[in-house]
């Protein structure tokens, strides 16, 4: 049995269903990223785990013990809050000591463990600083040290990086990942940034309207998205209508392209489909009668590759990765499908 197991979790607010029959399981030491668009129920799921909300249905089981009815105090889950929720009237040391004192740790042992926790986040010697005078990144690390100090069985993090500026964000993310893996702690990280989820999560649960859309590693989500929503949410993709031919081919306008059938179910030949094409799944080529033709309407340069916006006469638009010198704006080009990275789904739903 898994270390942490959520089954059938459901939470309604008034008439709105925030979390809808969500089941997930984590192995000991695993880091799970909860990813999804705004309002998809990530925070609510985390709060159900922490015990701040009680579910309308479903259970939370930790190491074989049912925690569903336990108050937050009794769960011993560590939590890092989105805005950190540092106690403003206490200094750094007292913030970190707070959870330890709740567990009855005192005296020299307390001082030692506070120091240990602060060393962990590279803030040794900051004990007597008022928290209001810290930078955003330092506050985030104090929040982390405070949550880790009582050695919780599970660490919950709600958008831990969202209040940091971009430069700091990347560094903090690396440090956070290193720390979490070094400690081998079981953790759930909520984020709406795909990059954070990819970097921090061993596996990623993608939520949509309170439901689990797909659970898997970053590679799995990217390479084999289970639904059109996943394909569109993870990575970049242009969406165009297509006709389903088989589980490996589809017709776009009058051209037959190789695809990956994403499901659900078996493909129905001749039925309408949605094609989600990754920029690297398409290639720019010379215009030719055997290829779908389009006009380059824009070019986004990123260094090694450029992303070209191409529009066909019928109004389909594609984003295609290529050599920055491959085409100029206004030029007419042919579009060629390279096989991998084209995901086909049935049109309805």
């Amino acid at each position: 049995m898994a270390f942490l197991e959520l089954s059938g979790l459901t939470k309604n607010f008034q008439s709105q269903r925030a979390v809808d029959g969500l089941s997930l399981s984590l192995e000991r030491g695993e880091v799970l990223a909860l990813l999804g668009p705004s309002g998809s129920g990530k925070t609510t799921t985390l709060r159900l785990l922490a015990g701040f909300e009680s579910p309308d249905a479903g259970t939370v089981v930790l190491d074989g013990r049912d925690m569903t009815a336990l108050a937050p105090v009794a769960r011993r889950f560590g939590m890092v809050f989105q805005h950190y929720a540092l106690f403003p009237h206490l200094d750094v040391g007292a913030n970190v000591a707070f959870g330890l004192e709740s567990r009855g740790v005192k005296g020299a042992e307390l001082a030692r463990r506070v120091d240990e926790a602060l060393t962990l986040v590279d803030l040794a010697g900051f004990e007597r600083r008022p928290v209001a005078n810290l930078s955003g990144g330092q506050q985030q690390r104090v929040a982390l040290a405070r949550a880790l100090a009582p050695e919780p069985s599970v660490l919950l993090l709600d958008e831990p990086l969202s209040n940091l500026d971009p430069a700091l964000r990347e560094r903090t993310r690396r440090e956070l990942r290193a720390l979490v893996h070094r400690l081998g702690i079981t953790a759930v990280v909520v984020t709406h940034e795909q990059e954070d989820a990819f970097d921090l999560g061993d596996r990623i649960a993608l939520l949509r309207q309170g439901r689990l859309e797909q659970l898997g590693t970053a590679d799995e989500l990217y390479a084999t998205p289970a639904t059109a929503f996943v394909a569109a949410f993870i990575g970049r993709a242009s969406e165009v209508p297509a006709t389903i031919l088989s589980d490996r081919e589809a017709r776009v306008e009058s051209f037959t392209w190789p695809i990956r059938w994403g499901g659900p179910g078996a493909p129905v030949s001749g039925a309408p489909g949605r094609l989600l094409a990754r920029p690297e799944g398409l290639r720019l080529a010379d215009a030719a009668p055997s290829r779908l033709a389009g006009t380059v309407t824009g070019r986004r340069f990123t260094g090694a590759v450029a992303y070209f916006s191409v529009e066909t006469a019928s109004g389909l638009s594609f984003e295609i990765a290529g050599n920055p010198a491959a085409a100029r704006e206004g030029e007419t080009v042919g579009i060629e499908a390279s096989g991998a990275g084209l995901h086909l789904y049935p049109a309805a739903g």
């Binding site: 922490a50 937050p72 105090v73 939590m79 805005h83 929720a85 707070f98 709740s102 949550a147």
Partner: peptide, 21 residues
């Protein structure tokens, strides 16, 4: 900020300790 009280609870502080501290 209500998150302060939740933070205290997640750090194992009971109702009285949260109120007082």
């Amino acid at each position: 900020d209500p998150a302060l009280e939740e933070a205290a609870a997640s750090l194992g502080a009971g109702r009285m300790r949260t109120l007082r501290r």
